[in-house]
């Protein structure tokens, strides 16, 4: 059952220390900045964050990192021109990093949400990122065994939600949102607008409300 929250604080209530938090967004597009700000106020620490990037500039995910709340980042592309917060923490040994190829990151999240125990994937075979992983030849090609990434919490951004939590996104801000929405125990979404049931075209719904626990307009 999806609940409509009055505030972003309500939407992130109860996140436990040590949680794995999936954070949507590709750079700042789709980044649930208001939910992250609420998570900073909420105070959970020792977090593992799963996101494509490791923060941009000083807001959003970068602000959470700067507060020292994150123990480990699992992402595909931490190093960017404006990732100075992460870079500093990493170079001073204050944060752990697991780099995952972007498609494998998406598919590991998808697997978690789809009840898949593990999958063989050709990406990364024979590279540093496959070291120590089980491999198997399939159709003459080396595949790497990859395991799901399940979140305790997912924080995502979407364009509109109805009161059942059915979501539509906008342009490339969709990115990891629909996959992360399936892959966590508790899923909180910030949207630009909450609309009445029956307003969204059912054919256009991208994420059905079954996946969504908390929605807040922010």
């Amino acid at each position: 059952m999806t609940s409509i929250c009055e505030s972003t604080d309500e939407a992130v209530a109860g996140v436990a220390d040590g949680s794995t938090v999936l954070v949507g967004g590709f750079g700042m597009a789709g980044m649930p900045t208001h939910l992250i700000d609420a998570l900073i106020r909420q105070g959970a620490t020792g977090l593992t964050v799963v996101s494509n990037n490791a923060g941009n500039g000083d807001t959003g995910l970068a602000a959470l990192l700067a507060e020292g709340r994150v123990r480990k980042v699992i992402c595909s592309f931490p190093r960017q021109h404006d990732s100075w917060v992460f870079d500093g923490l990493y170079r001073s040994g204050k944060i752990e990093l697991e780099v995952v190829p972007q498609g494998t990151l998406a598919e590991r999240l998808r697997a978690a949400g789809a009840g898949i125990g593990a999958f063989y994937c050709p990406t990364g075979a024979g590279t540093l990122l496959a070291e120590g992983k089980e491999t198997r030849e399939i159709d003459g090609r080396t595949h790497v065994l990859e395991f799901p990434i399940k979140g305790d919490v997912a924080l995502i951004g979407a364009h509109r939600s109805d009161r059942m939590g059915n979501l539509v996104y906008r342009k490339t801000a969709r990115n990891f949102g629909p996959v992360m929405a399936t892959a966590a125990t508790t899923v909180a979404v910030q949207v630009s607008e909450i609309v009445e049931i029956g307003t969204l075209d059912p054919e256009a719904v991208v994420t059905p409300g079954i996946y969504i626990d908390r929605v807040v307009a922010a």
Partner: peptide, 29 residues
């Protein structure tokens, strides 16, 4: 909300389509 992979603002052409990350990389692999 409309960026390329290098996080540069881009435009859409008629006939554009949007999809999520797992689909985007399934398309690739």
């Amino acid at each position: 909300d409309l960026m390329n992979a290098g996080k540069v603002a881009v435009t859409e052409l008629p006939g554009a389509a949007y999809f999520h990350h797992a689909d985007s990389f399934a398309m690739m692999r």
